[in-house]
Amino acid sequence: MIALLAAVVERLVGYPHWLVDRIGHPVIWIGRLIEAQDKRLNDPEASFDGRKMRGVVAIAVVVLAVLIVALGIQSLLRFLPFGWVVEVLLASSLIAQKGLRDAVSDVARALGEEGIEGARRAVSHIVGRDTSELDEAGVSRAAIETLAENTSDGVIAPLFYLALFGLPGAAVYKAINTADSMIGHRDERYEAFGWGAARLDDLVNWIPARLTAVLFALAARGMPGADGDAAWAAARRDATKHASPNAGWPEAAMAGALGFGLGGPRSYAGETLDLPTMGEGRRDLTAEDIATAIGLFDRAMMIALGALAVWALAGVVL
């Protein structure tokens, strides 16, 4: 029930910007803990294997600290008359459904109202790639790819662990995912130290990524112009081409569902990477196509909420 209510609250309200300004956000607090471990343990003079072990210790400290705090908060709230309300609000902060939708919608709006320069600025807030040279199709693909991938690790994964393990499960997932985004890079500083965080993130996202692909395929079946069978076929065919063992599943499923061609070459820090394509459809995408992708996202979220409702009802009955 907590997962269902948290999803509804987050979908309607999100995490207000004024609250971020006043007290921050759980991801910010977790990020500070990760930064502290990075400064304390990531010794550039240590051997590769030594830095690898230090990174494992760092992610273990972060996960254990977040787990202890979350368990403590949950235990305390269970003794309060309306503690479940606070638990729902806290859990909703670990989901990014509304924030993701709004950010991607801003890109489509910018394309229509501000032109390519405004759209580049808008999409730069949600992607890590270079955006200064992107045309309309490049901006649109970047927004849609981000929507697909973050549906998995920003929405479905935290809901999955929230439903299974309550507030501690969602909090620990968020800690692992945040650590991966901060230190799970393949560069000189983090290739060894971030190895543990990256591998753990791969593990915890394995099921949610594939669930997200299924949700997109199901959502496409009831959507005019979309194709559920093509969504699943594209996911099975193209997902394993992706460098990540998980990110390709939702991206390929969305591409197949809507007849888009996603992925392909992109630039990071001035270096062009020749990445595989997801889907076999057209690549000259527009703001209208972003809106279509958001429509598929909305349908997938309704299916997810329905599944959570069934889960909650089953828990009450049993």
Rank of each mutant, 00 (worst) to 15 (best):
V27H: 12
R78Q: 08
G31T: 03
F82C: 14
A70F: 01
A70W: 01
S93R: 02
A58T: 05
G115T: 09
K98L: 14
R51N: 01
D102V: 13
G128R: 11
A108Y: 00
A46D: 02
R54M: 15
A110E: 11
D43T: 11
R32H: 15
R78T: 13
I30Y: 01
G72Y: 10
S93G: 10
I23E: 02
T131V: 09
I95V: 08
I59G: 07
R129V: 06
G99Q: 13
G118S: 01
I59N: 07
L67W: 08
P44S: 01
N42G: 07
P26N: 03
L111S: 04
G72T: 11
A108Q: 05
S75F: 14
V107D: 02
E87W: 08
L64D: 14
F48V: 15
A110I: 13
S47A: 04
K52Y: 02
G55F: 00
G24T: 08
R101N: 07
A91I: 00
I59H: 11
V85K: 05
V63N: 09
L100Y: 04
R40T: 04
A46S: 10
F82E: 12
V107L: 03
V104K: 00
K39V: 15
R40I: 04
E113M: 10
G118A: 02
D102A: 02
G99D: 04
E113N: 03
Q74S: 10
W29K: 14
I73N: 08
V57W: 15
E87S: 12
R51L: 01
V27A: 05
V62A: 08
G50T: 06
G128V: 03
A96D: 01
L90V: 07
H125W: 13
V66Y: 02
M53R: 03
L76D: 06
R32F: 13
V123P: 00
L64P: 09
I28W: 10
H25L: 12
A103M: 08
A58R: 02
A96S: 07
Q37I: 12
E114N: 07
A36T: 13
S105N: 10
S124A: 11
